[in-house]
Each structure stands twice: as structure tokens, then as C-alpha cells.
């Protein structure tokens, strides 16, 4: 599989909803259209809600993957201006 270039990393472990989304939204505002943000999170509900919200904003979810018992990796490519 092709490696995806990550332009920004964001660690929101320890955050709960809605701050998982608040911080993810602020994170994606800091990159340009076409760039990719990688978010690491540990709030189970957010593993479902944050990717959905990102799609609703018009961005592309490239990956949501559980990497161990408690943590997820989410990769999002910015598709539209803020």
C-alpha cells in the first residue's frame, strides 16, 4: 500500500466529546487543502463521531484504525477551505 504523507500530527488522547471534535476541527484549519492530518485519539465514541463530522465538513477520511486496546489513528485529507 502506498504510504501517505502526513503534514500534521495531532494528539487528542485524554480528550472527550465534544473537545475531540473541537481540537480536530482546529487542527484541520491549520493545514492547506490537499494536506493530511493524522490524529491519535482514545475516546471510543470519537472514533466514530469525529470521522463522520470530518466527512460532513467535506473532508476525506483516509483511514480510521484501532491500533491497540485503547487507541485509534485517524487520517483526514483536507478537501475544502474553512
Amino acid at each position: 500500500m502506498e504510504d501517505i504523507k502526513i503534514d500534521k500530527n495531532l494528539d487528542i488522547r485524554g480528550e472527550v466529546c465534544p473537545y475531540t471534535l473541537v481540537k480536530s476541527k482546529l487542527g484541520i484549519e491549520m493545514i492547506e487543502v490537499g494536506q493530511v492530518i493524522e490524529i491519535i485519539l482514545d475516546y471510543p465514541e470519537a472514533a466514530d463521531s469525529v470521522p463522520k463530522a470530518m466527512e460532513n465538513y467535506g473532508h476525506k477520511v483516509l483511514k480510521i484504525e484501532k491500533i491497540n486496546a485503547k487507541e485509534w489513528i485517524l487520517q483526514v485529507r483536507k478537501e475544502v477551505e474553512d
Binding site: 465534544p18 473537545y19 471534535l21 476541527k25 482546529l26 463530522a53 465538513y57 474553512d82
Partner: peptide, 15 residues
């Protein structure tokens, strides 16, 4: 972040 969270998550507002 807490005070304005409901604004920040709106696509028309954001950070």
C-alpha cells in the same frame, strides 16, 4: 475552547 466549542465546530464559524 470550552466556552466557544459550539461555535468552533460550526463549519461557518470554526476557530
Amino acid at each position: 475552547l470550552k466556552r466557544y466549542s459550539r461555535h468552533i465546530i460550526l463549519p461557518e464559524v470554526g476557530g
